[in-house]
Write a protein that binds this DNA or RNA. Structure first.
Lengths: 415, 415
DNA sequence: CCCACTTTCGCAACGCTGTTGCCAAAGTGC
DNA sequence: GCACTTTGGCAACAGCGTTGCGAAAGTGGG
């Protein structure tokens, strides 16, 4: 996959070729983590020639995005030099607006959270109040990040494992990592530096338009209808802003965090929604409407749902939870998940959200049981679809929101 | 989107850039049809410079794939020269293996059916018999096509419209399908000429592996399990062969035939399945399992289905049809379609298959009613999802199967 | 310790892509 | 008939990945 320069045209020229390959290399560097990856390995993985990789990585090093980091053991000749990403070369902020709280994270290039904040929030308080809150919290996050970086890189590491202890020595140095002084050159290595801030990603529940950054009707708060959140925030913050549904952000975060292929992230809290990743890309549909999973009808003459239909998964699921019947809720969720898995032939189902977090094993087991059953009945040829807990936990949405700005750097398409 | 040269690597080099842009131009030429399109228009639509388009089209003309076709009215300067595809420069054969019949079409570059055949077939007769039948019918198709072309290029135009009465004279030919006659020069302009045959696409119902071209278990005929249909046919025919599910082939045909964006093709005959096109590309999933729509559960405690579950759409739908309750069947189908449309945010639902063909309006109206209802209840912001009849009719699958080989030429990704 | 060998990786030349500058060709309209 | 507009090819160009080749940096046998 490959995103060209201009509009929805599709024509590719040399600059677009270059940025495509650069993004590819950058993504492999990111995926390799602090351990790094050699040039020849990059060449194998991309299909490019070693020489092309050398040129690309030389450029990345000159720009301060990559650096050499030791060498591998020799196999009888000159040992391979290991390259790795310089995480401090770029940052993004991810904001999760939930109905009752705001979570924000400052994340560096490899996805490591370097600072985070969390405050209560009333989404119904109106657009001005919420925009103000976002502006205030992002400002504090930047201050925290800069300060934290000056002290010591904070222990919270990356989405994957990573006990890494990357560079970033203390001494808020004057060290000025720029090769060519003056100029607009390479981004400095000062974490939290506003100059390395690529933008702010905002994720929230309601139906909205990802492409235009406009909210439709945030469920329960009609006064938000039509509010141009992206532009309003971009004006106040002075950096690019991207808006998306919370489930999409979480799914993107998982995809970038190493989850491969196609999967569905099912989010169960006050509502039930899904984020779909198909072939490595978040599927939003033309109107950012995809992932409407909760109002899937699974019982034709079932109980009425506030949405107007009868027998929606969400209604049945929440009713079961209300009665304390968590296994029953899991079973209903499993039926919806099985419908989805069969329709899309996905590789995995990931569960998240507060309700799931309250009894993770019940839900994982319950959903898996339904999927296994159905696979077995249909004579599974390739085994069944695994069900697991989404790893990122409560910060999943905020981290994914930050990835709305980082992912494009690594060639992960985004609107 | 953009398909690189090598394996699943993603690295792009100049040849891949070139073929990408060439495919793009070729696709615009194809879409423009016999009316053609000017160089400057191609430049606008691709985002390339006029000069780049000139070079690309010059190459295409030299290869015999495009030609000049008149000029437009002047707008005060030199009038634009119109270019169009040379449809006779390439052909493909599409074969539809259904449970009781075989349909095969010979199609040229712009999708026009130039010859077709249809014979009774028993899918249960075993692999040898079926492979023999396919080989025999493709041979006759080529003979028919060559003969029809020798007489007069026949009037049936275009993949859209089509109430086709194309060639398909009887008279089985001897014309030996040997590929390697003389040189490999520019494809001659002899329609039906074997040398312009790009390959054969085969579409059939059962679960199968599109990537490997292997059948799993064709529903009802266990002896097919694991049969490597693609390789067996490729060996016999001496041309590339691609295998896919019937619903995917039909969906591909619709996508290439002008249906834009994302849509679902719902096929209702002896079973119920779906072909999904998301963002212009057929979504198959990693195991060609996507589109399993019929065994979506919409009634938790519904009647048992042969598949082992309860309350599958297919079971409910077919039961209603069995009782002569077509509106009821349409309503159930509509519930499933609405679930799908909400989950994927598609732009359109297209209905096809024999059962639908038997009472098209009942099904279209019934399904549309459910979708409209749900959209209205959820406060549709963008209007509702339109439901229409799939245009190609009974030949839809065979024509789509042929597109399995043509589509890649036009940059429409395929396995 | 030295020398042959292997492996990595950068420099230089190259082929080919789309791009830019320029001009001939082919119309319109006064 | 002449000024003007618009199209589209030729030629030079910049920049991409590729190829050829050699320096650098190891291993391992004598």
């Amino acid at each position: 996959m490959y995103r060209t320069n201009g509009a929805a045209t599709g024509g590719a020229n040399l600059p677009s070729l270059r940025s495509h390959n650069t993004a590819l290399v950058l993504d492999l560097l990111r995926t390799a983590g602090p351990d790094g990856i050699s040039r020849l390995e990059l060449a194998e993985r991309t299909g490019l020639t070693p020489q092309a990789v050398s040129k690309i990585t030389a450029r990345l090093r000159a720009e301060g995005l990559a650096t050499e980091a030791g060498r591998r053991a020799s196999t009888g000749g000159k040992p391979r030099t290991v390259l790795r990403l310089v995480p401090e070369a770029g940052h993004a902020i991810g904001v999760h607006l939930d109905r009752d709280e705001l979570r924000a994270v400052l994340v560096d290039l490899d996805g490591t959270v370097t600072a985070q904040r969390r405050i209560p929030l009333d989404l119904g308080a109106g657009s001005d109040a919420v925009v103000d809150a976002v502006v205030r919290e992002t400002g504090r996050l930047l201050a925290d990040g800069a300060e934290g970086a000056a002290r010591e890189p904070d222990g919270t590491r990356g989405p994957r494992t990573a006990d890494g202890t990357a560079g970033a020595r203390a001494t808020a140095g004057t060290e000025d990592a720029g090769p060519s002084d003056g100029s607009d050159g390479p981004q400095g290595a000062r974490p939290g530096d506003v100059r390395t801030l690529l933008g702010v990603g905002v994720a929230l529940p309601g139906p909205l338009d990802h492409d235009r950054g406009v909210l439709h009707r945030v469920t329960g708060f009609p006064e938000w209808d039509g509010f141009p959140l992206r532009d309003a925030l971009a004006r106040r913050l002075g950096v690019p802003v991207v808006v998306d549904k919370d489930t999409n952000a979480a799914a993107l975060g998982l995809a970038v965090g190493g989850e491969r292929g196609s999967f569905a992230y099912l989010h169960l809290s006050t509502g039930l929604g899904a984020g779909l990743v198909l072939g490595g890309t978040v599927h939003r549909g033309a109107r950012t409407g995809a992932g409407e999973f909760g109002h899937q009808v699974v019982q034709l003459d079932g109980p009425p749902c506030p949405c107007g239909n009868r027998g929606c998964v969400e209604a049945l699921c929440l009713a079961a939870i209300d009665h304390g019947d968590l296994p029953g809720a899991a079973r209903v969720l499993g039926v919806g998940a099985a419908n989805l898995a069969a329709l899309l032939d996905i590789d995995r189902v990931l569960l998240g959200g507060r309700t799931v977090a309250g009894a993770p094993e019940v839900f994982v087991r319950g959903v898996a049981a339904v999927l296994d059953d159905r696979a077995r009945r249909e004579g599974a040829t390739d085994g069944t679809v695994p069900v697991t807990l989404a790893p990122a936990g409560a910060r999943a949405v905020a981290e994914g929101a930050a990835q709305l700005l980082l992912a494009p750097l690594f060639g992960r398409a985004n609107g």
